[in-house]
Design a binder for these strands. Sequence first.
DNA 1: GGTCATTGCGCAATAT
DNA 2: CATATTGCGCAATGAC
Lengths: 201, 201
Amino acid sequence: MSDSRVSSVIQEWVSSYPGQPHSQALNPVSSNQAAPSSQMSQMDMISYNQSQGIIRGGADDRVTEQMMGLPYLSYNSSCLNNSSNLGSSNHHQSHASTQQDFSPFLLPTLRAPVTKRSISKDSAEYRLRRERNNIAVRKSRDKARRRILQTHQRALQLQEENQKLQMKIAQLTQELDTLKHILSQRHLQGGEEGAAQESSI
Amino acid sequence: MSDSRVSSVIQEWVSSYPGQPHSQALNPVSSNQAAPSSQMSQMDMISYNQSQGIIRGGADDRVTEQMMGLPYLSYNSSCLNNSSNLGSSNHHQSHASTQQDFSPFLLPTLRAPVTKRSISKDSAEYRLRRERNNIAVRKSRDKARRRILQTHQRALQLQEENQKLQMKIAQLTQELDTLKHILSQRHLQGGEEGAAQESSI
DNA sequence: GGTCATTGCGCAATAT
DNA sequence: CATATTGCGCAATGAC
């Protein structure tokens, strides 16, 4: 739970919506972004440059990225990140010399890239694990998409229900006023007992 | 708009929620996944193996993937996809021989991988465009995150409002019943003063 | 021709 | 050990 500020919140609200049938498909409205500028709130004032404040120059910059927290507040663009995904996709097993033997002199909990690389690429076990993770990723994202859709449909349904309820309230209120009026009239005409005891209801 | 079935829908409903103040933070409930099995609906019966139904053996499989539609229904895991992202990250400019000169005999709008490779890697212009796109991607995902959060908070707010409205309806209904009962009593008794109809209020 | 925005996907780190 | 989640980069594509 180091870098999931938004996601933890999402995770939380997901549990509050157990199951929604999401009956019909959404109407295919063609209009895009009715009011895009009004969606910007106080959180939108961040600048989408400057990925992080750190340098990320070494071998495993991804670790440093996600350990810093705030990964999508104030993004950085420079920082020579050619080595993050491009160089690591095809040929690994040979980049253990970026920080030679200085690693034990640094923080002992960090920096162990030399001995870390024994699982690495083009092994069958690695590909197996990657493929399993890819499947899990697709499944998880599919689930997330459905949750989002579900939440939206729930919001739509609640909005509709709200309107109906408000209409019913208006109707009941008017009915009540009518009856009150009738009762007050009866009070005035008929019995001489106190007129408006219903007004305290 | 070839592969965005869900996203177009999301795009659509986003515009229906112009701006929500999302005042307070969500309550930190600790329970995870109250009923995870109930979230599975009829769309969940897909198997998360078999990434796509197609072969994707050629050079630019990504194009074929996304032009097929249904990219996240029935995933495939085999299909020798080592060449999709791993082989394409570091060295391009040399994979134009997968489908030799058959490309002009296929659909002329597709298949032009040979002459397509002139922009490729480690050029400053490429890195510039990549970095700009990365920034745009972060921005877009940030926006999406906020939209999701907003929608959820809107749903919560609507749910709360719904409960209040239903309570008000219950109160109004009871009030109305009381008045109706009083009126019926008055009707039965005519001009005589009723006994204790106000005690029920 | 450009630009930015979206989005599916794979990777890696991390959480569960 | 496993799977699930998630930030990120890449590439394709859409939109302007």
